[in-house]
Every structure is written in structure tokens, then in C-alpha cells.
Amino acid sequence: MQVVIVEDNVLLSAGLELILDTRGIEVAACVGDAPTFLAAVEEHRPDAAIVDVRLPPTFRDEGIKAALQARRNRPELPVLVLSQYVEQDYARELLSDGRGGVGYLLKDRVSRVGEFVDALERVAAGATVMDPEVVAQLLSRRDDLVGSLTPREREVLALMAEGHDNSTIRSRLVVSDNAVHKHIGNIFAKLGLGQHDSGHRRVLAVLAYLGSGRTGG
């Protein structure tokens, strides 16, 4: 796999390169600002892009804008956005085009190398990956919506929202395949959401549901 990284902090970009290198992922280009990044994506046609939110010149949300622009230029480009903090609004904007291949993670997650590379690979494969922190924020604010769920169902809902597929949910919670199916069925029934297959559509549906002020899906 080949990736392009845009990260203005040299310490962090060197760390990322080190981690990806040990896992056999090729870094085609590592750049420090949005315009160079867009050019690098055109030049290298990477399998995925890793984007930092704060970039020069203003160090605000240039990374989000650059990620959206890169996906407008190349709609199939998977993008994994990394940030020192998560903001639901950014997650919403990244997901707004409704296509998969989007990830939004805290930079902290990079240190769990296995999980980070796994997330990158899932994004590259077209899945949607959300940081547990985003999901936790959504869940904590929506007691009204998820109050009817059992604790176990909440855990399953959170893992779904983070973009995990059924087999990962099963192994994370150490339960049987059947149990996972039953929990998911219950969740969708209780929340009044239409069933979705396990792809990014399910993530979008769950996130949209948690992010909305309405009940029902």
C-alpha cells in the first residue's frame, strides 16, 4: 500500500513514517501544507491519504478543507484525518459526501500501532472509521435516544458507530456471531432505524441518527 501524508509537524510526520515503514506501508510523499498535498495526491495516486487537521498558514481547519478538496478532485481517494482533538462538526463535514473511505481519529491512536494500521487499511478498503471519542461524545449527549438500550447493546452501538464490522465486534466483546446479530437487530428495532448491511452505510446511518435532534431514522 502507498500513502501520502500531510503533516506540518516534523516530529509527528517522522513518527508516522517510522510506524508505516515497520508495517511495510510505503510513504510516497510527506508534505507540510495543503496545496503541496493536493499536488502530491495528483502525482502519486496513493491508496490512501493521511491528513492533519491544522496546517499552515492559519493552523485552523485547513486539513479538513484539504481532505474534502482532495476527495472532490479524486472521489475514490480514501482519507484518514488525524487531529489532536476531535470535533463532531468536522466528523459531520467529512462524512457529508456519503461515500465511504473516510477515517477521523485522534493522533493518540497512532501509538497503538496495530489498531492504527488496521484502521488505515479499513479506510483504504472503503470503510468508515470514527474515533471512539467522537462516538462517546455523541452517546453521552444522546441519553434521550439510547436510554432504552442495555449496556451491552450500547457497546455494540458504539463499535458500529466507530466503523467496526460484525466479526471485529464479536472478537472485541468476546461473544458469539449469533449474539452480535441479535444485539444489532435489537438496537435497530429499538431505535427505529432501517437495517443496513455492515458497510459504511451502517456507520453513516448510526452517526446521522446520533447526531440528529430527531428520533427515528
Partner: peptide, 28 residues
């Protein structure tokens, strides 16, 4: 950092930050 200066405030200014804050609240 959030208590010193919320990052969203630095990114989007007071109005943008408040808009983000109010849209994600549990009630209208």
C-alpha cells in the same frame, strides 16, 4: 487545552464554535 482555549474556537471563531456547540446539543 480545552479549558485554556477550546480548539474549535481557534479554528472557527466564537460564532462558528457556538454554532458547532449548539447543533450538537441534545435539545433544539
Amino acid at each position: 487545552i480545552r479549558t485554556i482555549y477550546p480548539p474549535i474556537l481557534a479554528d472557527r471563531g466564537l460564532l462558528g464554535a457556538l454554532t458547532a456547540l449548539t447543533t450538537r446539543a441534545g435539545v433544539p
